[in-house]
Design a protein around this nucleic acid. Structure first.
Lengths: 163, 163
DNA sequence: GGAAACAATCTCACTGGTGAGATTTTCTTC
DNA sequence: GAAGAAAATCTCACCAGTGAGATTGTTTCC
């Protein structure tokens, strides 16, 4: 990500410096995310799950039954995607749809008994994979990282919101 | 990502604490990445490009012609993916394949003249989008973030390498 | 209490990307 | 210098996920 050939632009050097810093962060962010995501994906793949599928199971495990809507927002897929995803999990008997008392448009999504015990058996191991992936950072560094990353998220999301 | 109900596990509290920290970092990393990736994708989409397509063009722009192989490693797609990606860009006349002098298995990939000027016109604007997305962090915080993220990447990649 | 705006889900055609294996060329080692 | 391992790319069948629009139900507001 070399910007040293931008000498023909009229932007002041300070701004170029800031841009260069920002691009470095973005590259580092993408690579770090990719590295961890690959480990996470490889781990859940051993149980025949994609990360999205595991995400659904995990959120239902920790938060209980939930509208499709909410699951969708939490795991960041499209409306068509959540239907497809829950269809797959339902076919495998890990999840079930229930009517939502008080709103007949909506469906609740809940773990079945087999789904419950699958997550219970997978999750601790998966958490250990994540712990190892981040073991290069001390707890203080992890706190720092969370703070910085949340700052990035916040700015990004507010920019996305305004268009 | 609530782990406070793990009281039945035999893991010591210290380890649980480390795991909880790690999970928080992983969540924050995923959300921050997603927020910036969405902005980046929306920006390049205005020119009819996906992020992967832009990635190819950008790396060729900054590093010059390159084996398909190298492009593939840099933008993190599969072998089938890079063929498909370069096919698409080639059909649009933004990129061309050339024979590699000295190795008849390999193909070089290079920007065409239109490709060159497209990237030249898009890149500064795109860099500005990234700068804005990360404007919530001071330059010192950006440096910190890069350091922490590279640490995560390194651990992740070495874990992936060993299996 | 009816109309219109809004909300939750689902359908469907499509696309970006994967991964195993095929093909061609190069490197290594005997 | 021949055989086999390794490398670079491509092919192809497949799949997860998207997004526009349809459907059904709810809320709001006159």
């Amino acid at each position: 990500m070399n910007t040293s050939d931008d000498t023909q632009t009229s932007a002041p050097a300070v701004r170029d410096e800031e841009t260069a810093h920002a691009l470095r962060v973005w590259i580092a962010l993408a690579r770090a995310h990719n590295a961890v995501a690959q480990l996470a994906a490889a781990d859940v793949a051993r149980h025949g799950l994609t990360t999205a599928e595991f995400g659904v199971l995990e959120v239902l495990y920790h938060k209980g039954p939930m509208l499709l809507n909410e699951v969708q927002r939490r795991i960041l897929v499209s409306s068509g995607g959540i239907t497809y995803l829950v269809d797959r999990l339902e076919k495998r008997g890990l999840v079930e749809r229930r009517d939502c008392p008080g709103d007949r448009r909506a469906r609740l999504c809940a773990l079945t008994e087999p789904g419950q015990s699958l997550v219970a058996s997978i999750f601790p191991e998966h958490a250990a994979v994540i712990r190892n992936a981040l073991a290069g950072l001390s707890d203080e560094e992890k706190d720092q990282a969370v703070k910085l990353l949340r700052g990035i998220q916040k700015t990004g999301e507010s920019l996305a919101a305004e268009g």
